[in-house]
Nucleic acid binder design. Structure first.
Lengths: 237, 237
DNA sequence: AGCGCATTACGTACGCTGTACGTAACTAGG
DNA sequence: CCTAGTTACGTACAGCGTACGTAATGCGCT
């Protein structure tokens, strides 16, 4: 059976091995590890079926014995790095624990900068996603609320972390990839933005840029965002 | 000058016309409209340089006179549908206005289901993005806080809306694209999830699935999410 | 024990993508 | 008027996901 683009079955539901036929040369973990290695070193765009196969030392089409679609390779990658989540004994203070979870997720994303881009299509419950979710629920044992609310909390926190770190990484990547200096790019943007503001059509934007806010501390912005999300769920505040 | 993949210049900073040479046959608006039409009718994947050129009735490479990179086409598309935002006179109640903004953005995204996928790399200040931002700031005139905080509020609200509607759309799309019935797919997933839970490794997940929560009302989940975000910023609560 | 067949491995090929490059037609500025 | 810069666009290339066909392999069953 070769790859099937028309089979939307969840990959975690299909057994890794059915018993019949030659022993597979690789495991899903091998494949995931190879893909993660490539993504870490050469970026997500370098993760093609050909490159992953080359990294493993097998033919391109052999991969389709393990994965029906490339999309599933992404699923494997996300699950693989999910194993790096450190799961501790809940402290009893759900706020502190959830903050720690969020910061850990951010660290994970900074270590694997391609991760935010693959987080949107979270739809299968991969093994490590289950472990992670169970851990979050454990941390929320001290939270007064239904499981429904707890899920909503975890979902929003994850969403905010993904969005923020995704922006953070995209900004850094853009600065890194510039063929000319960052100052040159900044000046072009400032010039354009200044011209727009100078039309007088955006008085509040103009005022905002007059406001002296000092240097932007991304870490602090992130922390504030987390606190606000938790505030929104906190029944005691 | 043909397309330049190595020029990260913001497209809004370059003039649409420099004066020399033959009159361009199309405007940026024409191109954006063609791309939006294709995306609306055939999905984001159908938006290729070839298809857009065909829609316009010109040669593929002619597009590169208007856009240095395909990425800029996406920027044009996001800006184009941004014009559909209705901007009203602020009511004086920032909470109500921001809720209305968020719901309007959701409506816009449901009308153009490809929008959430293109929202992540928001980096250029497109004309309509500026108008939208100015409007949000106007709505926040009654909000006690610095412009820095107001930007953070708008950013988080937009992020949450994008994440939620993106998930909503992805779920709907997945259900629509199934080659077999939705029940069949559901049963496969339930079977897998049930087997995992039956191992006893995820007691809280098990409890969560026991909890009778009734049918999930996506609209209500969305509304709750918005309220919580605003609560997190509300100095009066 | 040995047959049958599902499975693995993988080369080839197809249609699609973004875009570099070269050439011809055209028009505004000096 | 001339010429330099711009538009238009055909051709071409490297890369992508993956359908398909064929050969080798080894488990499960009789």
């Amino acid at each position: 059976m070769a790859g099937r683009a028309d089979v939307p079955e969840v990959i975690w539901a299909r057994p890794e091995r059915t018993g019949r036929g030659p022993r597979p040369a690789y495991t899903r973990a091998d494949i995931a590890a190879a893909a993660v290695r490539i993504a870490d070193e050469r970026g997500l765009d370098a993760v093609s079926m050909r490159h992953v196969a080359a990294e493993l030392g097998c033919g391109t089409m052999s991969l389709y014995n393990y994965l029906p679609r490339k999309e599933d390779l992404y699923e494997l990658m996300v699950d693989a790095v999910g194993a790096e989540h450190e799961l501790w004994e809940p402290s009893g203070d759900w706020r502190a624990d959830m903050l720690r979870v969020a910061h850990q997720t951010r660290t994970l994303m900074l270590r694997h900068p391609w991760l935010p881009a693959l987080m949107s299509p979270v739809y299968g419950f991969s093994p490590n996603a289950l472990r992670y979710l169970e851990h979050c629920l454990a941390c929320l044992d001290s939270f007064e609320g239904t499981y429904g609310t707890k899920f909503e909390l975890v979902a929003m926190l994850n969403g905010v972390v993904t969005t923020y770190v995704g922006n953070e990484l995209a900004t850094a990547e853009r600065a890194r990839a510039l063929p000319w200096s960052e100052e040159r790019e900044q000046s072009v943007r400032i010039a354009y933005l200044g011209a727009q503001i100078a039309t007088g059509a955006y008085p509040r934007m103009a005022a905002a840029f007059m406001e002296d806010s000092g240097p932007i501390d991304l870490e602090a912005v992130f922390q504030r965002a987390l606190e606000r999300v938790l505030d929104g769920f906190d029944p005691t505040r």
